[in-house]
Design a protein around this nucleic acid. Structure first.
Length: 908
RNA sequence: GCGGGCGUGGCGGAAUGGUAGACGCAGCGGACUCAAAAUCCGCCGUCCUCACGGACAUGUCGGUUCGAGUCCGACCGCCCGCACCA
């Protein structure tokens, strides 16, 4: 798809940009050949572009690559300060989408800007390549997951390269490559040795049709998201990483992440969920199945005198013991087990219980006993899996008590209430109050004073103690999947779970697998799992589970520092490059990925692989890319390509002209068909257009709407900038003095440098774009002024500056501008420094001061910058409109803010 | 229920307590053109006024201040995250 008639052939020496002869004007025919070669879908605005992105973009991409502009060493010795920019690496789903374009453009702006500021910038790219979609493709289309994945990677790599990202492609890797996941196996074995990984039984969501464990997010309305089968709870032996060992640290260290968004830190803090309370033991009146007591966790031990019942989770050992001898209990437990754990299921599920007939003794009240219920709302995973019910002061307990007609004794009296008539109706009271009906706690303030008093009493009696409890649970990493990193363990009947010796790593996935049966193909494989025990040599079985793919993404940023190392990472390289200075990605990873990576980094440091605790010093979370959705009269979703927007805001179906309903702008999704293919946009308008538009529309942390009009506007602006460069005057020597138009232009130039720099530092790229628009307007104004040598020189300075300022955002155009401005230079703009603003040149000569009377704007005066207060006030009073407002009034106070405002306060 | 965020023209948005609406999109008018596109110039919050100018205006109500989109309080609306977490 060349533009042969117009663009010159590539200069043989690609390293010499001066030899590019970038754009031929004059002798070449301006319209004909281009029009013939333009894409058929090109908009009319593209019919006569002066800047030919079709030839320029690939040409500059080759030039950058040939010169190795974006490559850095694992352990550089050039003495430059380091800067590690990373965007969340993509899952190779098939093609890139607009979310990728936005994400990688944001990162590239940072990378190119920091590089120009003199940093050695590491900006790598790789592939989060394991995952379920590859297996789905295998089942649905018979493609091998590896084939599917590697093909997608090839496609998406090409698309990313066409975006002109300043990536160090020499660092590329895919997590599905044994050269990566083998090291992950080694890391796991190190974690195992350090006591940070262990195998234990746990309850999981089990899909009986697919024969696999489901994550909570994969359970929809109590059914498996793929099979639609009713999900069961099942006890399975699984591998866990002990993230809870770091709960305290992961929470405390959030305070130090001052370059993270506040809301991400809050979400993590909530997820870790620290609470303070007490653990205490209730003795059973009579033992059952060898169990003589129940341990309970509570955050409100002060309300113990308000106890009405004790409830245990259906999975609690005592429930099992009771069920062994009670058909009713067994049936209830079975019913709970078949219940989904999804949010929807939980929300709609009524509180239900089963009275075991057992009773427990109260720790404080001699002789008092309470019934023990099995209750569906008690979670085995949180606390101890048992609670004491205090219905007066806990809404869930109250709902339960009302359903089963259990007593509701109040023990905390709200301020201003009289204890005589106080009773709980249908709303539990969980606020601050005064203790009543509570023996030795009576009169204390609850919970502040009463809670420690209750804990002290429990400790004195030896039945409980104050504890800190965490919501965070250990990270279950076992998945019954083929397309993941094999867990490097061998199960031996005699020796138990034996780690694969380091020398035998990597444990490779077998290629010859079938997907025709449900369940895990690794488990079905005829030979793969049958191995000798590394310890005793007897026949043994390989672990056929693979790691959760979140493990793969928990250390990839460290691997990027030394991607070809024989070890998981080189200590020198990670010590140099970590932490990531700027990490950029979607808010959807605010909790799991970022928390796992923070934990894993600590684990890497504990096992000697790295030396930092926090992987990401700075985090930026971008918004989504949205688009209008369209529906035909029959309700079918229509893609934007099938719809024509009318000037009056309505839309019709292309071809038929049938009316189309325009829906609100929402996240691009395949189901709503409101997606726009970045590849098509880049082919039609160029990468710089796509980059400029995703940056210009709004602040990057908010959702942005993709519109054709916006993209076309970005395209027009690119053409406009290049026209300014083409019509530049010949350069000359630095003049001795500058006239007014030249001084104005130089002021605009140096103000633009300062303003764009500030906006880039602030991540307000939309403001940087606006400042560049203003700067372009100033250049256009200078072009209209009468020509003069000093103005010509100032225009040259402005255009050179303009090229540099747009270079992080539109790097191809910037190179083309730079090469055109400096046709003899053997330099790439990508290697040029960022411009520096001269405050003296940026300073204003005159300034407009607003004049208010009683805070209302009445006029404005134009004064010299250095004018003293008396001069400014005199000018202000003289301003006709101000004078009129002050006429006959007595000024009692004059406010003067230099350079800004005058305000006269008048009497009466 | 708990936690957080956000309300500014037709739209996206800008604004260290100091001329609200920068900049862009859309729209309107004009120039160029046989015509259209492209390009260039101008207008563009609402109301009153021929105009000069004035009044109103940043979700609502109140407060602090010479001065509030910005700070404080209450309320309304929308969005997001977490959630039988004891």
């Amino acid at each position: 798809m060349g533009v042969k008639g117009r663009a010159p052939a590539l200069c043989p020496n690609r390293l010499n940009p001066a030899g590019f002869c970038p754009i031929q004007i004059g002798p070449e025919p301006p319209i004909g050949p281009l029009a013939m070669n333009a894409p058929v879908t090109a908009p009319s605005v593209a019919e006569a572009p002066r800047y030919d992105f079709l030839s320029a973009e690939p040409r500059w991409q080759l030039a950058w690559e040939a010169r190795g502009c974006f490559h850095v060493e694992d352990q550089p010795t050039d003495g430059k300060p380091k800067y590690y920019v990373l965007e969340m690496f993509p899952y190779p789903s098939g093609r890139i989408h607009m979310g990728h374009v936005r994400n990688y453009t944001l990162g590239d702006v940072v990378a190119r800007y920091k590089r120009a500021r003199g940093y050695a910038v590491m900006h790598p790219m790789g592939w989060d390549a394991f995952g379920l979609p590859a297996e789905n493709a295998a089942r649905e289309r018979g493609v091998h997951p590896a084939r599917w994945t590697w093909d997608n990677i090839a496609t998406m790599r090409g698309e990313l390269k066409r975006m002109g990202l300043s990536l160090d492609w020499q660092r590329e890797f895919a997590t599905c490559d044994a050269a990566y996941y083998g090291h992950q196996q080694k890391l796991f074995l190190d974690l195992l040795r350090a006591g940070l990984a262990e195998r234990r039984e746990s309850w999981v969501n089990w899909d009986p049709v697919d024969g696999t464990v489901l994550a909570n997010e994969q359970v929809i309305d109590g059914r498996g998201w793929r099979s639609g089968a009713v999900v069961e709870k099942k006890l399975l032996s699984q591998w866990f990483l002990k993230i809870t060992d770091y709960a305290e640290e992961l929470l405390a260290a959030l305070d130090g992440l001052d370059r993270w968004p506040e809301r991400v830190r809050l979400m993590q803090a909530n997820w870790i969920g620290r609470s303070e309370g007490a653990r205490l033991r209730f003795a059973l009146d009579a033992p059952a199945g060898g169990i003589d007591g129940v341990e309970v966790y509570t955050t409100r031990p002060d309300t113990l005198f308000g106890m009405s019942f004790l409830a245990i989770a259906p999975e609690h050992p005592l429930a099992a013991a009771v069920a062994a001898n009670s058909a009713g209990a067994a049936a209830f437990v079975a019913e709970c087990r078949s219940m989904g754990t999804s949010e929807a299921a939980i929300e709609t599920t009524e509180k239900k219980g089963f009275d075991t007939g057992l009773r427990v003794r109260h720790p404080f009240i001699e002789g008092a006993t309470y019934p023990v219920w099995i209750a569906n709302f008690v979670l085995m995973e949180y606390g101890t899996g048992a609670i004491f019910g205090c219905p007066a002061h806990d809404q869930r307990d109250l709902d339960f008590a009302r359903k089963y007609a259990l007593p509701v004794p109040p023990v905390v009296l709200p301020a201003g209430q009289d204890s005589a008539g106080f009773a709980i109706a249908d709303k539990a009271f969980d606020g601050t109050g005064t203790m009543i009906n509570s023996g030795f706690l009576d009169g204390l303030t609850a919970p502040d004073a009463a809670k420690p008093a209750a804990i002290a009493a429990l400790e004195k009696l030896g039945v409980g103690q104050g504890v800190v409890n965490w919501r965070l649970r250990d990270w279950g990493v076992s998945r019954q999947r083929y397309w993941g990193c094999p867990i490097p363990v061998i199960h031996c009947d005699a020796c138990g779970a034996v780690p694969v010796p380091d020398a035998d790593l990597p444990v490779r996935l077998p290629d010859d697998v079938t997907f025709d049966a449900p369940g895990n193909p690794l488990d079905h494989h005829p030979t793969w799992k049958h191995v000798a025990c590394p310890r005793c040599g007897q026949p043994a079985r390989r672990e056929t589970d693979t790691f959760d793919t979140f493990v793969d993404s928990s250390w990839y940023f460290a691997r990027f520092c030394s991607p070809r190392s024989d070890a998981p990472m080189d200590r020198g390289a990670v010590d140099h490059w970590l932490p990531v200075d700027q990490y950029i990605g979607g808010i959807e990873h605010a909790i799991l990925h970022l928390l796992y990576a923070r934990f894993f980094t600590r684990a890497l440091t504990r096992t000697g692989h790295a030396g930092v605790d926090e992987p990401f010093a700075g985090l930026f979370t971008q918004g989504m890319v949205t688009h209008e959705s369209y529906r035909a009269a029959d309700g079918a979703w229509l893609s934007p390509d099938e719809v024509e927007k009318r000037p009056d805001g309505t839309a019709v179906q292309l071809g038929s002209g049938a009316a189309v309903t325009i829906g609100r702008s929402e996240k691009m999704s395949k189901s709503k068909r409101n997606t726009v293919d970045p590849g098509a946009i880049i082919a039609r308008f160029g990468a710089d257009t796509a980059r400029w538009f995703v940056l210009s529309d709004n602040p990057p942390d908010r959702d942005m709407e993709w519109t054709d009009a916006g993209a076309a506007g970005a395209f027009r602006f690119i053409q406009r900038l290049f026209r300014h460069v083409e019509s530049r005057p010949a350069g000359g020597a630095l003049p001795d003095s500058f006239g007014q138009p030249a001084r104005d232009l130089r002021r605009a130039t140096h103000r633009a440098i300062a303003a764009v720099t500030e906006a880039l530092e602030d991540f307000t790229f939309n403001v940087a774009v606006a400042r560049i628009h203003e700067f372009a307007n100033a250049i256009a104004e200078a072009e209209r002024a009468p020509p003069s040598a000093d103005l010509d020189w100032a225009r040259g300075e402005a255009l050179d500056t303009l090229a540099r300022l747009v270079s992080p955002m539109m790097p191809h155009l910037a190179e083309e501008m730079f090469a055109t401005l400096h046709p003899d230079a053997d330099r790439l703009l990508a290697e040029q420094p960022w411009p520096v603003a001269d405050p003296a040149l940026a300073a204003a000569e005159r300034v407009t001061i607003a004049v208010q009377v009683m805070g209302k704007l009445r006029g404005a005066v134009d004064v010299a910058v250095g004018a003293d207060e008396a001069t400014v006030l005199a000018a202000a009073i003289a301003e006709p409109n101000v004078a009129r407002a002050l006429e006959g009034k007595r000024v009692v106070k004059r406010i003067y803010v230099p350079g800004r405002i005058v305000n006269f306060v008048i009497a009466g």
